[in-house]
C-alpha cells in the first residue's frame, strides 16, 4: 500500500504549532508507518512536491510570500488543514491589523531599532494590509484550532486523515489554550 504523503508548512506564525506536533512524541513513529512527511520545516526537501495528500499549515497569511505559498500548496494538495489559531483566526499576527503597514515598518525598523535604523536593503516579503486567516484566501478542508492545538488532538486528527477520514474536531479543541 502506498504511504500517505503529508506536508507541513508555516506562514506567519511562531512555530509553536509545529512544536506541539512534535509533542505527540513517539506516536509519530506509528503515524510514519503509513505516512511520509514529504515537505516542511521538520524535513529537508526544497520544493513542494506534486500529489500531496494532506498539508498541515500553521500561521496567518500576512505577506505576499505567504499568499504565493498557500496558493501553491492549495493547488498541489488534496486536503488542506488549517493548523492552529493563527491559521484560523489570524490570532497574534492579526493584532497588527489595526495599524497601517507603513506604521509597522516605522516601528520595527526605526523606532524600536537601537542600531542601523533603516529598511532592510535585501528584499523582504511585502506585508499585506491585513494578516488574514488561511480560509479567507483559499479553501480549507479541516480546521484544527488551538494556540497551540493539543498534541493528542493533533495525533487523533492525523490518524484519521491518514486513514482517509476527516476528523471530527467539534468539542475537542478550542481557540486559545
Amino acid at each position: 500500500m502506498e504511504k500517505v504523503k503529508i506536508a507541513t508548512s508555516w506562514l506567519d506564525g511562531c512555530s509553536g504549532c509545529h512544536m506541539s506536533l512534535l509533542d505527540i512524541d513517539e506516536r509519530i513513529l506509528t503515524l510514519l508507518e503509513s505516512a511520509d512527511i514529504v515537505y516542511g520545516p521538520l524535513v529537508d526537501f526544497k520544493d513542494y512536491p506534486q500529489g500531496v495528500d494532506v498539508a498541515i499549515v500553521e500561521g496567518a497569511v500576512s505577506s505576499d510570500e505567504d499568499e504565493e505559498k498557500i496558493t501553491k500548496i492549495r493547488k498541489l494538495t488534496k486536503i488542506l488543514v488549517s493548523f492552529g489559531d493563527c491559521a484560523i483566526t489570524a490570532n497574534i499576527p492579526g493584532m497588527r491589523n489595526y495599524f497601517p503597514t507603513k506604521e509597522l515598518y516605522e516601528r520595527a525598523y526605526f523606532e524600536n531599532a537601537d542600531l542601523n535604523q533603516k529598511r532592510p536593503s535585501i528584499r523582504i516579503p511585502h506585508l499585506l494590509s491585513h494578516a488574514r486567516p488561511i480560509h479567507e484566501v483559499v479553501t480549507v478542508d479541516v480546521f484544527l484550532p488551538g494556540c497551540p492545538p493539543p498534541a493528542d488532538v493533533i495525533f487523533y486528527s492525523l490518524s484519521e486523515l491518514i486513514n482517509g477520514r476527516l476528523p471530527d474536531l467539534k468539542g475537542k479543541t478550542r481557540f486559545g489554550r
Partner: peptide, 8 residues
C-alpha cells in the same frame, strides 16, 4: 471585535 484567546 478582536478576540485573541491565546493572549487573553
Amino acid at each position: 471585535r478582536n478576540h485573541i484567546c491565546s493572549a487573553c
